[in-house]
Simulated assay, not measured.
Amino acid sequence: MKKLLFIFCFIICTNAFAQILSSTIEKKTIALGEVNSFVVTINNLRDEKVSAAPQNELLPFHFEEIKDSIAQNPDIYYRRIEFAVYEEGKFTIPELEFKVGSKVLKTIPYEVDVINTAQKGDTINDIMKNKEVKLEVTDYWELYKFYILAAIALIALIIAIIMFLKWGRKAKNSPVVATNQTLKELDSLKKKKYIEAGNYRSFYVELIDISRSFITKQYRLPADVLLTDDLIDLMKKNNTISLENEKVVEDVFLRGDLVKFAKTFPDKDTMEKDLADIKDFVKRSSKDLEFENLRKDV
């Protein structure tokens, strides 16, 4: 009998000094978006520290926490969470752990039924009538300024592209540019000292290549793909190149073919004269183009 009395007293003392966790939920059935509350209380803390999930992170995903307030004194821990659910269905608040010192306490799980209380055909009334607000020019600017600036930038880009396509490419392929570029190439050829070294074959190969490229750009003739005889015949039929320039091209190109096949061996004076004649031809080409443009206008 004494033994039973001792055990009974021990249980009473243990419960009297043990931490007690309790939890309640205000409503187990709520409407969509309705605010509900969940409360956790722990008694008999005896200055023990309580550890749990951070504020606004205690409840699962579907429970939108609106307010999470915590109060604690040396003996009691109190936590109240206000929440809402914005989906229909049944949702569960599982067991939630609260660590008191080294001891882990758990709440009981709760099931919350979320229903849509709106009925088909219900009239939805505004809380207040809509107001008409008169907008000023500055208000419209604030609303649409990014669209306006984007449209201006797009128009400017389109204009820049059109200008580049219309004038930019023409500038690079203009007669003056082609002339200056070719004269530089001819000067570079002279600096290679082919004439002084008597390397007539390399001299004429490069001289003819430069000349063909120039005729192709300047006169829009396929000089880069035609044989010499065909090119001379085309120049005479085309009438774009003056007779003086035709003569220079014909003499130099025919001599270049003879040199290429080792049928002639020009001397230094001849090579220097051919280089000078091609330079003069390049410089005079602008006059050919001016005459051609006048003829087209007439």
Rank of each mutant, 00 (worst) to 15 (best):
P109Q: 03
E82F: 13
I70K: 05
Y140V: 03
V205L: 14
A150E: 08
I7A: 01
G168W: 03
D297R: 15
K192V: 03
S69V: 12
V248A: 00
R169Y: 14
L32D: 05
Y140K: 13
R46M: 15
N15P: 03
Y194W: 08
V248G: 00
N15M: 15
E48G: 04
A156F: 10
E132M: 12
T138S: 15
F261K: 02
E34F: 14
E272Q: 08
E142C: 01
W167G: 07
N238A: 06
Y78A: 01
Y140F: 06
F281I: 00
K217W: 08
I208Q: 01
I70L: 06
Q119Y: 09
V225Q: 02
E97G: 08
C9P: 08
G101L: 11
Y78T: 04
D267I: 05
K260P: 02
K192P: 00
S202K: 04
L21A: 05
K103H: 12
D269W: 10
L221T: 00
T29Q: 13
N43G: 01
M1E: 13
K145Y: 13
E250C: 10
I11W: 06
G89C: 08
A160F: 11
K2H: 09
F253A: 00
K260L: 05
N238C: 07
N239C: 14
A178Y: 03
Y219C: 04
A178N: 12
K166R: 12
L189C: 00
K190P: 07
E65V: 06
K120P: 02
W141M: 14
L258F: 07
S285C: 03
E250G: 10
V133L: 10
N73E: 07
K90S: 15
D68Q: 05
I127M: 15
N130V: 10
